[in-house]
Design a protein around this nucleic acid. Structure first.
Lengths: 252, 252
DNA sequence: GTTTCGATATCGGTT
DNA sequence: AACCGATGTCGAAAC
């Protein structure tokens, strides 16, 4: 994985190292040390001289990490052009992106190390517990929401967004179900309200709205009740979704 | 910044390295090499053996990066407990978080390198062009939205969220302004609709609703018009916000 | 390409 | 601690 490295290189050697390794397909470059970072695009930012980690991945994404936080200080999801040059005896790395037009420029003041990595293709990655999985589970077992519920559609487009689950209850009334994999907030309540209103307008009949989530915030619960909508607790544990996945299914 | 390192260490030496350096305040650890990653918490995931970069920052955040993407494969914004032990001749690093209870475990199959970094405190970081800055600018210069607009309040709470700008127009009508720093979507339209409805209910008078953003999506524009609401283009360029910042201001 | 929506969202502010 | 809203959100799927 570690292809090459330099410790405390001078600017010329760093530049040479970068030019050598940046061409390689599948090569990942990491620079650690004192830098200044400038970003200009959808917004703009400047980071004064400080120690940062700059990571350039094989997919042409770039991120600059400081000592804190999951999120990088600056980043670029995809770089279209990369320029390297010496600027006043320092390596300046300018990453440009079109659409939107943005640049991130790192001026390397004092490089502590630079690594050239060639990670092998990553293995499989499986995530359990997404809202999509919960939706598939409930689509197959609508009785987990309410006994007698008959599924009509999944992800039904309404013009104001897609209805997660569209169904008919035991008494023949239409039911709109909005799902959340985590704690539902008042935003989810308003989302449900929009869907219910739209379906009412389109069908002219009685339409129930159910917010199905493992939890709901107190203010959201209040607002939900005011609007005549309902809440159903559905446990979205990864385990249950996994159990579901073990069975061959129609929607997986 | 680079305090210590090992290349291709065996498990015992890696474990010793980690135990030595993890205690240090302000120390950042990076492990690169073949690993397996397991996550269990709000969701659950497994990553098969592959080459990853594991980054443990001084703020007790952890992230594992694969060869693609800005976002880590697995992460933990804050670790409450870290366990290191040898498992079948391999270093297993288990990071636990309470509230919510979650774990990320990395089993290091073949470490390529490990670094101990002590980044100096980062320098200043300034971001220009946030919605908050746009709001401050427009609060000081409401005429940029409409001539004759008189500001009444900023971030006025309404029970369904805060109104970005609350004002009165030249003809004495109340105006609710919803701001977006980027392209406004139908969510912004519905947000504005909620605010306008709430203010109408509370005041009983005529209330105008203005969505102020640099752009608006076509569907959002259609819905906005249907609802009798208005759009005003406001350029949220970092440059203009920066110009504003150069003047000492009330809201900065 | 645009739009939409989920996310282990993260992050910061306020209550 | 819960709640709320912005984010340079990112990223993927649907159209």
């Amino acid at each position: 994985m570690l292809e090459d490295h330099l410790f405390r290189p001078d600017a010329v050697r760093l530049l040479e190292f970068l030019r050598t390794h940046l061409g390689g397909r599948g090569t990942m470059i990491q620079i650690g040390g004192a830098m200044e970072i400038v970003y200009h695009g959808r917004a703009a930012s400047t980071a004064d001289a400080g120690d940062y980690l700059l990571l350039l991945k094989p997919d042409a994404s770039l991120q600059v990490h400081a000592a804190r936080g999951i999120k990088p200080l600056n980043w670029q999801p995809r770089i279209d052009a990369l320029d390297l040059h010496l600027d006043d005896g320092r390596v300046a790395l300018t990453a440009e992106r079109r659409s939107p037009l943005e640049i991130v420029r790192a001026t390397v003041l004092e490089p502590a190390f630079v690594l050239a990595l060639t990670p092998r293709d990553e293995g499989g990655f499986v995530l359990q517990g997404s809202e999509a999985q919960l939706r598939n589970l409930l689509a197959k077992r609508p009785e987990l929401i309410e006994e007698g519920l008959e599924l009509l559609d999944v992800e039904l487009p309404t013009g104001v967004g897609g209805v997660d689950l569209y169904a008919r209850d035991a008494e023949g009334r239409l039911v709109v179900v909005e799902l959340k994999r985590g704690r539902a907030t008042h935003e989810a309540v308003h989302q449900l309200q929009r869907y219910v209103g739209r379906v009412r307008d389109e069908t002219g009949g009685t339409v129930r709205g159910i917010l199905a989530a493992p939890e709901i915030t107190a203010p959201a619960r209040t607002r939900l009740t005011e609007l005549g909508l309902e809440f159903r607790e559905v446990t979205a544990t990864p385990d249950e979704a996994a159990v579901d996945l073990e069975q061959p299914g129609l929607f997986d």
